[in-house]
Each structure stands twice: as C-alpha cells, then as structure tokens.
C-alpha cells in the first residue's frame, strides 16, 4: 500500500456506510426475491444465490436470462454484467495487504456500493471501509431476498412508498461526493450518462453498462501513452 495514502476513515465509518447501503439495497433484495420466485425459481435456490453470488444486477440478469433462453444465455448475460469487477479488482489490489491468497479473499468484498464509498480522493481504496461496509450489507441482502422470496410483496407496493428511488438516490450522492473531490472527471460522468441513456434504449442493461464504461478510456488522454 502506498505510504502517502490518506488515513482510513475506520471501521466505524465502514459500519455506518454498510448499514446505509444495506438499507438502500433492502427494497432491491426484497424485489429480487419476489421476482425470482415469480419466475419459477425455488425460494431455497434464490436465497443460496444471494448468499454466494451477492451481486444484484447479475442475479436479476441470471433470472431474466434463464426465463428467456436457458442456462447459457443466463450465465453469459450475468457474467458480462460482472466483468466490471475485473478493473475494480485491479484498482483494489494495491490497497490490500498480505499474501496473494489473502488479498484474493479480501477482494471478494468488492461490491458496487461499498467499493465506490471506499474510494479515496487519490484513487486508493480505504480497506477497513470496504471490508466493513460489505460485511454489513451481506446478511441484509440475504435477509431481504428471503423476505421477498417467501412473502412475494407486489412491486406496486414498493413503488408506492418510494423505495424504488433508494438505489439511484444512494448512487447519486456517492457520485456527487466523488466528483466534488475530482472535478476533471465531471465531463466523463456526463458523457457516460449520455452513452448509457442512448445505449439502454437499444441494448440490454448489462451491455449498456459496459458500453458506457468505455467512456472512461477518455481519461487516458494526457497521460502520454497511446489509448
């Protein structure tokens, strides 16, 4: 880990962030459980999925893909969506201590909300924040899935009380914090918004996410290396 990195915000900050992300993710996990069961998945398998996959977007993609084309398209769409974890893992590697095995295991704590929240202004990752935030999210994600799978609340109810706004609102405040610390990235965020909006009109959500992420290549200009 670089010696001049800013100090960690600590485990307590990680717990605070983890609880907030978990609460924000609760309506999504409940929706996922209900969605999967209504698509013919046994509740037990749905709960196992949330336990060992722990990736909302990929889980939705797996269930959707399974309903529309079987196992191969389902796995393809879900894994395509999770390709983003490769660059996130590479970006995290230098912030994790110990042997390769230990770091590979700690890297399993990389999930979107916790990873974005653990970003420091210098681009390194606040390890205590990442680990704690993920550890507090995980059981609530499983519990939410179980509630959804076993009780199947209607999506109309979730929408009526405004819980479907929690996920985008949470990511929006994190994005604002991130851009305030690194203003040169504002054009990249705006460009990614435009690319995502256009591509999701024609392509699936997973593919659109990957297409929009290519906007980040713009940042390579000015580093003196060919893009």
């Amino acid at each position: 880990m670089p010696s001049d990195t800013p100090p960690s915000e600590g485990w307590k900050a990680g717990i605070r962030v983890g609880v907030m992300i978990a609460l924000a993710g609760l309506p999504i996990s409940i929706s996922f459980g209900a969605f999967a069961v209504s698509n013919g998945w046994p509740a037990a398998i749905v709960i196992v999925m949330s336990t060992i996959v722990f990736s909302g977007s990929a889980q939705f993609a797996l269930v959707t893909g399974f309903a529309s084309g079987g196992m191969i398209p389902a796995i393809a769409s879900a894994t395509l969506l999770n390709l983003r974890f490769i660059p996130l893992s590479i970006a995290t590697a230098s912030s994790l201590p110990g042997s390769k095995l230990r770091r590979a295991i700690e890297a399993q704590s990389i999930v979107d909300g916790a990873w974005f929240a653990a970003q420091r202004p210098d681009g390194t990752i606040d390890r205590p924040m990442l680990l704690t935030a993920t550890l507090f999210q995980w059981p609530l994600w499983i519990a939410g899935t179980a509630v959804g799978a076993l009780s199947k609340p209607s999506t109309e109810f979730v929408d009526k009380i405004g819980l479907d706004i929690v996920f985008p609102a949470f990511f929006l405040v994190i994005l604002i914090d991130s851009l305030r610390a690194r203003r040169p990235l504002i054009p990249i965020a705006l460009a990614a918004t435009a690319v995502a909006a256009i591509s999701v009109h024609w392509l699936s959500a997973g593919v659109s996410l990957i297409v929009a992420s290519f906007v980040a290549l713009w940042a390579i200009r000015g580093t003196g290396e060919p893009s």
Binding site: S178, A196, L209, T223
Partner: peptide, 19 residues
C-alpha cells in the same frame, strides 16, 4: 491508472441512468 481512476465516475453515472 488514469482509466481506473475514471471508471467509478463513468460506472456510477451509467448505473444511475440505466436504473
């Protein structure tokens, strides 16, 4: 490094938009 630094902003903006 520049790409990795920019990726969260691009991904977050895209996630919000797609959601």
């Amino acid at each position: 490094k520049a790409l990795i630094d920019a990726l969260p902003a691009a991904l977050l903006a895209a996630l919000i938009t797609i959601n």
